[in-house]
Design a protein around this nucleic acid. Structure first.
Lengths: 125, 125
DNA sequence: TCGATACATCGATAGTCGTCGATATCTAAT
DNA sequence: ATTAGATATCGACGACTATCGATGTATCGA
C-alpha cells in the first residue's frame, strides 16, 4: 500500500474535523524517504564547500581532465594536507577518481557523477 | 555572454617541461573564482541536509506546489522549531518562497531555482 | 642504503550546524 | 481585551567540519 516513491494526495475526508484546517496534509510518507535523502545529502555536502567546488572546476578544466595534487595548494591558497582532505571527501562522494602513478596522484572527474546529481535536481521541477 | 556561476574552463596552460614536473599546472587563476565558489557552495549547503531535501520533495510533490508548515513536522519526525529553521535556510538560499495567508505560512518552490543549480552542475561534463 | 619528494594521515583547535525546549510574535475568533 | 493556535526566534548543547602543522608512508634517484 505504501509506495515510498509515490506522491499521494490526502483524501478529502481528512479535512472535515476542523473547519479551520490550513490545507490537505500529504500521505503519511514523504516523497523522498530517509534512506535516499541521506544518500543525496551526502553528495551535496561534498559540493557544499567553496574550495571543493574550485577543485572540481580545476580538475574539469584541465585538457586531459586530470590534475595532480601538487597543482592545487597554490591556486587554492590552502595547505597540502587540507587539499588532500578535500580530495578524499570528493572521492568518497563518488565525484572524483584517484589514480596514483609513480610518486604523483592524479584526480579526475567520475564520468556522469555530476550529471546524475544534476538530473536529480532537475527532476524536482 | 557567460553565466557567472558557470564553472568555466581556465585558459589552457603553458606546458613547462621540467624534468621532474608531474604535469602542466593550470593558469594562475582557478576556473571558478572565490566569489562564485562561495555563492555556489552556499546553495549546495542548503541542499546538504536530508531533512531539507525531504522538505523540498514534499513541497514539490503537492498538487498546487504549496505546503503549509503544519504538515511538515510529523512526516519529518522533527520539532516545529527545527522545521521552521530549515525552511528559513531554504528561503534564504533562494530555493523556496514563503507566503503568509492568515495564520498559516505556505512554502513553494522558487521556479527554476533547482533547475539553475542543475544546469551549473551539468555544465561540468 | 640514504635522502628527497609527493602525498596521506594524525591531533588539535576554532568555528559551524542540527536539534531541542522555551519564549515571542502574529492572527483570528470569542 | 482575551484566548487559542500557528509560526518564528532565542539560547543552549552536542556533533560535525575546515584548517593547520607534524608525522607517517611510499616512490624514485643517487
Amino acid at each position: 500500500m505504501s509506495d515510498p516513491t509515490r506522491m499521494t494526495m490526502a483524501s478529502p475526508a481528512d479535512v472535515d474535523e476542523a473547519a479551520t484546517a490550513c490545507c490537505a496534509p500529504g500521505s503519511g510518507e514523504p516523497a523522498l524517504n530517509v534512506e535516499n535523502a541521506v544518500d543525496l545529502a551526502a553528495r551535496f555536502k561534498a559540493l557544499a564547500d567553496p574550495n571543493r567546488l574550485r577543485i572540481i572546476s580545476i580538475v574539469s578544466s584541465n585538457a586531459d581532465s586530470e590534475t595532480c595534487v601538487c597543482d592545487l595548494p597554490e591556486p587554492l591558497g590552502l595547505g597540502q594536507s587540507t587539499v588532500s582532505h578535500h580530495l578524499k571527501i570528493l572521492v568518497e562522494a563518488g565525484l572524483l577518481n584517484r589514480e596514483k602513478r609513480g610518486v604523483w596522484a592524479y584526480y579526475s572527474l567520475v564520468p556522469g557523477a555530476l550529471g546524475a546529481l544534476a538530473a536529480t535536481l532537475g527532476s524536482q521541477g
